[in-house]
Amino acid sequence: MIWLLDDTWIVITGALCAVACALPGCFMVLRKMSMMGDAISHAVLPGLAIGYLVAESRDALPMLLGAALVGVLTALFTQWVGQFGNVDRGAAMGIVFTTLFALGLVLIERAADHENIDLDPSCVLYGALEMAPLDLMTLGAWEIPRAALWLAVVLLLNLLIILLLYKEFNLSSFDPSLASTLGINATFMHYLLMSMVAVTTVASFEAVGSIIVIAMLIVPGATAYLLTQRLWVMLLLSALFGILASALGHVVAITVPTWFGFDSTSSSGMMATIAGLLFLLVWLFNPREGVWVPRRVNKTES
């Protein structure tokens, strides 16, 4: 295996994305709305395209704002379709996100046709993690991949919001009614979380693609949930699983296929795969209630 500086940047970029996703992802898992992450990460596409068309450039900020807006709208529309259309929550989500996703694809195709630009649908879907180290930005004495910088900013933002509003997120996830009676706006917390997911998704799109975003929003949090009974430990563990999946994923992607005479495979795809395998391992062997470990916890003892 040949390890270059580029490989380090790929792992760092992947890990930044994984942790940025895992933090809000833990709350999605706990609120039993994991699929909302999937829906939002698809539905932000038109926001991305509109941001691009309005600003007429690939500046990240208008695209981020457009996507965040549509992300919140996705949550709102899902609520409305469910409420007024008399369909269940899953169907409402399916209707809203596929419609918005398709609209986004149409808008992107149109933008690409007319202006001869490089907003490429397949790039949005699959990302180009291997290309991330080629697009460098100078920050003081450092040359940092643009994607890593963006993801670091989003990660810090997510971390800051969760640290500042830790008890509000905690209570409104566990008991939204009590939260409301104490004056904590549970609806606002819901849409704040949705905005965080939308912004994180968009920041991750170009670098790593939507597949890894969907995986990293849910899988590290779900894995950590199997191992702990404390919220802050769950957040910490989910970040560690995200980092582990990124590092292992890239190593496996560049080594394992070559053993069988193939070229190295997609790193972001392998990162998501490893995250899933880690979940499987923890599910089977975790000491608390792993499938192959005898249950030791007595539920009713006092």
Partner: peptide
Amino acid sequence: PQRESVDWDYPVSALDVVTMGTY
């Protein structure tokens, strides 16, 4: 609230839940 209105698998301790009353 009614006891069934929350998810009792949520990762908090008894003390954490009671502390929520002071939020």
